[in-house]
């Protein structure tokens, strides 16, 4: 999994940290720290995926961009050129 949080948009509501604490954590009162590439590529960690997906959906300002892809056919370095 890969994700990025638009921290200009994020308002530190911490819903994500509540729903997927393995990936999102508050640091101080308002700062959000997150793991940009959680889980292991290629391996389906169903629970982690579900938690992160729920966190994305719960963010009130829709600041989280998530890509569930494990490897990318025909794209990315080593892909088609």
């Amino acid at each position: 999994m890969r994700l990025v949080v638009d921290l200009n948009r994020c308002q530190g509501y911490a819903q994500c940290a509540f729903l997927a604490p393995e990936v999102f954590a508050m640091h101080g009162e308002e700062s959000l720290l997150y793991d940009p590439n959680p889980g292991t590529d290629g391996e389906a960690d169903a629970e982690l995926r579900e938690n992160v997906t729920r966190a994305v959906a719960a963010c009130p300002v829709r600041a989280i961009l998530l890509e569930l892809a494990d490897g990318r056919a025909g794209d990315g370095p080593g892909g088609a050129s």
Binding site: R2, V4, D35, P36, N37, L65, R72, A73, D75, S81
Partner: peptide
Amino acid sequence: RTALPRRRDIEAAW
């Protein structure tokens, strides 16, 4: 482990 998530495939030659 900081690769950016993609919004879509871009079918590019890299």
